[in-house]
Structures are given as structure tokens and as C-alpha cells.
Write a protein that binds this DNA or RNA. Structure first.
Lengths: 117, 117
DNA sequence: ACAAGTACTTACCCTAAAGTATGTATCATG
DNA sequence: CATGATACATACTTTAGGGTAAGTACTTGT
């Protein structure tokens, strides 16, 4: 029975609220290797699961659905499943997810300015 | 002798350039648990090492200097050491680091909009 | 009857990032 | 002569995130 350390920063940061640090809050939502890439793909319009896989060839299926699920629970993407066979599942950005555009744009702008120095 | 898998996505993402994915490029610079918090602290002006420690009580010294070093090599913060005893070391945002302000502001704005929904 | 396509699921492994704990150099001061 | 203050360094451990590989359910086409 291995003890879980409740008061570690690791655990603390998980439940961090917007009031503690808004930037950390955002990082928890869109941080990591894959989430920004997935969001970026969906910014060019809704896509089926298989289309996302083709658009991001390096991602594994596990990572793809795992992050898509997380993005759903965070209300950044919507999932629409048509009950046909073979299944047709379409993912799209929610209004909240669409609102991320200025954030990602600011990042891209900074990235190019950083490159020039 | 354990083989290192050269062609893993893990390794691939490390050397990712701005041309592949600007957002991932930015994430590599300011992502993680602590970097945004440190940058945010320095946005209110230069601070000594000990001041940063007091301002971010949860961070360990190891994490603090480790990320300060990384931020230096990425040219986001400057380090100024006065050769006195006891030492006086002051950290401040570089011009490039200061340029991150719109990015962090966009994040904060989005965070508060997200909270209302 | 079996391969193919779709959208997942699950079990197991590996590593990088984060955390813990302790040590170092220098000098002023009591 | 030992303590305190500052700004680190370093060895070891833990954990969360990511990766690999294989399996599932359902139906259409051959």
C-alpha cells in the first residue's frame, strides 16, 4: 500500500483554479504535446476521427481519442456520432474552443518574432 | 544496454521547429508547470532569486533555478549577478520575454471567458 | 466464410519531468 | 568559531504522460 502524497505541488496544480493562476489553468486545458495540434486541425473545420488520424500521422490512436475525450469534458470540442455502420463520428470545435483562436494566433505571432532574433 | 528509439514522437517533438508547428514551439518554451508562473512574476518587474522563491512558495529551489536556466538559454530572461558577498542575483525579462505579454494576456482573457460558461 | 473499414478499448511498458533531501562557497557578525 | 544569509548544485526517487501492441463490434462486399 503505497502512500499518496496529498500535499505535493503535482497534485496541487491539478485542481488549480483560474483564480490561482489563469495561465496555468489554460495550460492544463490546451497544454501537452497533442492538444494544440488537434485544436489547430479542427480550426480549419469539423473532421471525422479518421480524417484527424490522417491529418496527424504521427499520433497514435490511443493519444488521439484520449485527448479528444479530455477536450470534450473541457467543453472545447463537440462530438457528433451518427448511428450508422460503419460508424461516422465528427469532431468540431465548440464555441469555447473557437474562442481560443486569438490565443493561438498570439502564440504564432510571437513564435515568428522569436525566430528573427 | 537498452536501445533508444530515435524515431519516437517524444524525440521528434523536442527538436520541433517553428515551421512544423509554431504553437508546439511556443509550448516548448513556456509550457510546463512552472515557467508561466515564473514569467508572470517577472512581468511585474525584475526580481532577485530569493524574491522569486518567496513569491512562489510552492516551488522547490531545484525547479526554480532549473527553469530560470532554461529561460536564459531560450533568451526569455536575463540574469545579472553582482560579485558581492552574500551574492546578489537579479532576474528580469528580456525583450523577447516581454513580448510574451500579449500571449499571456490572451490566455487570461480566455480563461475568464471560459469560467463564465 | 472471411477480409476490410470504422471508431474505439485495454493491458502493459518506458521515460522525462517533477519532487526530496542534502551539500557547497563566501563573508559578516555575535 | 559557529551561525546565518545568499544562490546555487547534485544524487536519488517518484509519477504522469506518452508509446506499443493487440483486441472489439458491427456490417458490407467477394
Amino acid at each position: 500500500m503505497t502512500q499518496v502524497k496529498e500535499n505535493s505541488t503535482r497534485n496541487y496544480n491539478k485542481g488549480i483554479s483560474i483564480n490561482n493562476c489563469p495561465v496555468t489553468y489554460v495550460m492544463n486545458k490546451i497544454g501537452g504535446h497533442w492538444k494544440p495540434i488537434i485544436i489547430h486541425q479542427l480550426m480549419s473545420g469539423p473532421k471525422r476521427y479518421s480524417e484527424l488520424r490522417k491529418a496527424i500521422p504521427e499520433i497514435t490512436e490511443k493519444m488521439l481519442i484520449q485527448h479528444l475525450k479530455q477536450l470534450q469534458t473541457d467543453d472545447l470540442v463537440n462530438r457528433e456520432a451518427r448511428p450508422v455502420v460503419p460508424p461516422v463520428v465528427t469532431y468540431s470545435l465548440s464555441p469555447l474552443g473557437t474562442d481560443l483562436t486569438p490565443v493561438l494566433n498570439a502564440m504564432v505571432e510571437w513564435a515568428f518574432r522569436a525566430q528573427q532574433c
